[in-house]
Amino acid sequence: MLTAHWLYGISGCLLLALGLRTALLHDMLLQRLIGINVMGAGVFLVLITVAYRGPGIAPDPVLHALVLTGIVVAVSATALALALARRLTAEQDDG
């Protein structure tokens, strides 16, 4: 196990837990959404760390592709959540 695996792997786990805590406890939508995105970043960091094989060695391209897919899915979900939130505040302000 490389030092980079330790450092980045543990950071990924910490980011996941940090994001999860905010997503569960925060009472503002935006922070909860950012929390979920940080959680996602943690999982992606774990995946990219697993893909890493050391300096000068080609990393695992499958995991890179998975993370690319995950990033696009995450931004789609964020966009939908924000559109729903915008709709809610628009109605709150009207009513």
Binding site: G19, L29, I36, A81
Partner: peptide, 20 residues
Amino acid sequence: VQAALRYLLLGLLGSMMFLA
């Protein structure tokens, strides 16, 4: 819309746990 937004956030949380 309010229920859907909650549903989305919890669904995303579930998906992230699954992906982990």
